[in-house]
């Protein structure tokens, strides 16, 4: 259904034109370009954070609690005298990994389930539909709370809970994308060419569903980070004194009404920045994948 039927004069492959398209969009849309830069920065902090920070994020300095931001402590210190900057930077890895693993899990299982349901229909479809409906019948954050509370208050369970509540998004998307292509001409042609069902699904249909899925992954990363931070904010999963953005905001909450703003603002801002980056990235990818549906 692409409307770009016009033939580019050069014989360059779609890969090259894809890159050109990407470069063009980045140049035209500086916001997406910024998102890519921020993403690289966050990735860097997650990988090398512990070696970059000036202080041990766990070390307490009883002598200097609740210091406002200064040259020595850029983001100030908390009530135990720990350096907020170091804690914020080191927390990047944990927050990012929770979200990444959760999203990866829900992508793999969700899209496999959805693709099967969309391709075969019938009882697989009905069964998976029931399962997803049941998950979606809960307010998702509340379900995550329930799962973590029941399965045990650990970081792994935060990951599983986040993966479970994200699963329906991938499954439904994969189902819809596979379903519209199930009887497309090229799929029928593949059948006539002697391809088996799983081959058609894996090699012919699934690659076509990837672009919208990538957008979903990016947007979902932001949401997963928010969820995990929200859970630790109410005391689930990550335990103090581990540095993690949600828990740091929770600890700082007691001091906000007495004016020690930096305990909340810096970890909160880091959280916002990370989520913001993934959301912008998702929007940018959407432009790349589907220029007609730019929002």
């Amino acid at each position: 259904m692409t409307q770009t039927a016009s033939t580019p004069a050069s014989a360059a492959g779609a890969q090259a034109s894809g890159w050109r398209q990407a470069r063009y969009l980045l140049a035209e849309n500086p916001v997406s370009a910024m998102a890519f830069v921020l993403f690289a920065l966050i990735l860097l902090l997650a990988l090398f954070g512990p070696w970059l920070v000036p202080y041990d994020p766990l070390a307490t300095y009883a002598g200097e609690p609740l210091q406002a931001p200064s040259a020595a402590h850029w983001f100030g210190t908390d009530n135990l005298g720990r350096d907020v900057f170091s804690r914020v930077v080191v927390a990047t890895r944990l927050d990012l990994s929770i979200a990444l693993v959760a999203v990866a899990l829900s992508f793999v299982f969700g899209s496999a389930l959805g693709a099967m349901a969309g391709y075969y229909g019938g009882w697989i479809d009905r069964l998976s539909g029931r399962l997803l409906d049941t998950i979606m019948a809960f307010p998702l954050f509340v379900l995550a709370m329930g799962i973590v509370a029941a399965a045990g208050n650990t970081v792994e369970n935060i990951v599983y809970a986040t993966a479970i509540i994200n699963l329906p998004f991938y499954a439904r998307m994969a189902r819809a994308e596979v379903n519209v292509r199930r009887n497309a001409g090229f799929v029928q042609a593949a059948r006539l060419s002697g391809n088996s069902d799983w081959r058609i699904l894996a090699l012919h249909i699934f690659p076509n569903t990837l672009p919208p899925m990538m957008v979903q992954i990016s947007l979902n990363m932001g949401w997963a980070i928010l969820n995990a931070a929200g859970l630790s904010f109410i005391g689930l999963g990550v335990r103090p004194p581990t540095p993690e953005w949600g828990i740091m905001v929770a600890e700082g909450a007691n001091f906000i009404i007495s004016g020690e703003w930096w305990l909340v603002v810096f970890p909160g801002a880091a959280l916002v920045l990370a989520v913001f980056t993934f959301n912008l990235l998702g929007d940018g990818l959407r432009d790349l994948v589907d220029p007609q549906r730019r929002t």
Binding site: T2, A184, G185, F186, Q188, A189, P207, N208
Partner: peptide, 14 residues
């Protein structure tokens, strides 16, 4: 078989 819609009958990623 040759299909009706030449666009629809070719895998866009192949």
């Amino acid at each position: 078989m040759v299909f009706q819609d030449p666009t629809d009958s070719l895998n866009p990623r192949w």
